[in-house]
Amino acid sequence: MSKRFENRIILCTGAGSGIGRATAIKLSQLGAILALTDINPTSLPETLSLCEKGDHMSSAFDIGSTDSCNTFVLSIINKYNRLNHIFNCAGINPTSLSTVSISDEYWDKLLTTNLKGLFNITRACIPHLTSGASFVNVASIAGLRPTAGFAVYCASKYGVIGFSKCMALELGPNGIRTNIIAPGYIDTPTNAAVVEGKEAAEVMAKQVSYGRMGTPDEVADLAIFLFGDESRYMNGSVVEINGGLV
């Protein structure tokens, strides 16, 4: 396998499971040196054990904490003296709720992780980036089309897309790209249908023309493309990966 990301330092949030884990594993196989984070302290060692051996680092913390994000990014710079790419993948999947049923706590939880966390990491990284660096941010199809019962989640993911497009405009003149992945129904441990069980997952799969949910590996392949030179003229792009939603 080509080591086309050899010696590139790549920060991945949400690396403890699902899309974040799959992307970290594939990047390590392509030679990347990883700085991984997740809120779950027990999942990161497992991710690292599945990655190709390398001078990787990891830290478990809540990306909703500004201080924790700043500290982690500085630790990356202190260790490697550079940072090449950022994969903002951490997020919380939604629960179906009517707007009047949404509590302040639920609103704060989703917006803090899905949007503020991405902002915290991005702001901390920008001063250390040079031309050729890039962000790939994970939004959702819920950031492109409204869905009844998911107002908070949609708000957070619409926000991810809007914020990311602004970063593309701000950072593009410095040779730094920002692109967005909008996954559809992906078979991850935190997907609401997967959590509910086989029948719910089958109902969700029937809404896809392929007749199945996507896999984290398939999203990881798209992230790798967006980090690579093949996508060098893509900036501010939102790429859907949904298997053809009916």
Rank of each mutant, 00 (worst) to 15 (best):
L48R: 05
S49E: 13
E52N: 13
K53N: 08
K53G: 00
G54Q: 04
D55N: 15
D55E: 09
H56C: 01
S58V: 01
S58Q: 10
S58T: 00
S58L: 08
S59G: 00
F61Y: 13
F61W: 10
I63F: 05
G64R: 10
G64P: 11
S65I: 11
T66M: 10
C69D: 05
N70M: 08
V73Y: 06
L74K: 14
L74F: 06
L74H: 12
L74M: 04
I76K: 04
N78C: 05
K79Q: 07
N81R: 14
N84Q: 05
H85L: 14
F87W: 00
N88I: 03
A90W: 08
G91C: 05
G91W: 10
N93Q: 15
T95E: 14
S96C: 06
L97Q: 12
L97M: 11
T99F: 13
V100F: 08
V100K: 11
S101T: 03
S103T: 15
S103A: 07
S103P: 04
S103F: 04
D104G: 07
D104P: 06
E105A: 15
E105D: 13
Y106F: 13
W107D: 06
W107S: 04
D108V: 07
T113E: 04
N114G: 09
N114I: 08
N114H: 06
L115V: 07
L115D: 04
G117F: 11
L118T: 15
L118C: 15
F119A: 14
F119W: 14
T122C: 11
A124W: 14
C125E: 02
C125W: 05
C125Y: 03
I126P: 04
P127C: 12
H128T: 01
H128P: 01
H128E: 06
H128D: 07
L129S: 03
L129V: 02
T130N: 14
T130I: 06
T130H: 14
G132I: 11
G132E: 03
F135K: 15
F135D: 14
N137V: 12
N137Y: 01
V138D: 06
V138Q: 12
A142Q: 06
A142M: 10
A142Y: 10
G143V: 02
L144H: 03
P146K: 04
T147Y: 12
T147V: 13
A148R: 07
F150T: 11
Y153H: 11
C154W: 07
C154I: 09
S156F: 05
K157W: 00
I161R: 06
G162A: 08
F163A: 12
K165N: 06
C166A: 13
M167F: 01
A168L: 08
A168I: 10
A168E: 02
A168T: 09
L171S: 12
L171N: 08
L171Y: 09
G172Q: 10
G172E: 07
N174H: 15
G175H: 12
G175S: 11
G175I: 13
I176L: 09
R177P: 10
R177M: 11
T178F: 02
T178W: 02
I180Y: 05
